[in-house]
Design a protein around this nucleic acid. Structure first.
Lengths: 119, 119
DNA sequence: CACGTATTCAACCGGATGGTTGACGAACGT
DNA sequence: ACGTTCGTCAACCATCCGGTTGAATACGTG
């Protein structure tokens, strides 16, 4: 897992971590606050946060012995760009297929080339 | 890894699989066609495709002994909804913080409550 | 200083993951 | 019917991942 996008997707592949992101979207929180809803050790939560941090999804500051966790907005843009790009392409292809099917069912004006192999 | 969103994110956490998605966005392809660019065995590629299929990102049909792989558009919506939701919230919080900071630097009309602890 | 609180580090464990090789099945082409 | 091509299944291996427990660190307070 080297590049950022891989780290981000991997981080969000875990339901607990996604849940933490959802939680952090409403406001910053400390590690123990974040740990409270789940019945895993605080250390496990700390590990999850490390994963989220290394993915750039959260940042941590310092307040006495606390370590408030903050959700970072920027990384979401990276994901949005990737997802939207291929979503658009996939949908465009889907619409194009639709058109082809429509043409096949009422084939007036059939001018498409013969069986171009999809490569 | 039980729920769909987890499977989708996990599937896309691998650069090779993201690459295949990018490749498939331009058109359907067979397993061996997809395997060609990478220097891994065809079996490994087959495994990757299984992961993508179980995540609902691709589907496979049958054409003689070929097994054309097709990118599915719908699942992208699921991701878009999740990502966009928290991106919006995170950005909204960011803008709000901006406003608070602005108020602190030129504190005319300071009417915010005293130190409400972020819980 | 000593103590409690909050968090992380280190070592360990079982299960998943990504890769390999080898064998098999399914569908042409001749 | 035979061999060839395309793809998957099975077993194996090294590594990663999410969890644990136990010790260490960092900071505020008595």
């Amino acid at each position: 897992m080297d590049d950022e996008l891989s780290r981000v997707f991997a981080a969000l592949a875990d339901p607990t971590r996604r849940d933490m992101v959802a939680r952090l979207a409403t406001g910053d929180a400390t590690v123990s606050e974040l740990a409270e809803p789940y019945d895993v050790s605080v250390q496990a939560v700390s590990k999850h946060l490390k994963v989220l941090e290394e993915a750039g999804l959260v940042s941590r500051s310092r307040d006495a012995q606390r370590r408030p966790v903050h959700l970072e907005a920027q990384v979401f843009d990276l994901m949005t760009r990737w997802v939207e790009r291929y979503r658009r392409e996939a949908e465009a292809r889907y619409r194009r297929l639709d058109a082809v099917l429509a043409e096949m069912t009422h084939p007036q004006d059939t001018h498409h080339a013969d069986e171009e192999n999809v490569s």
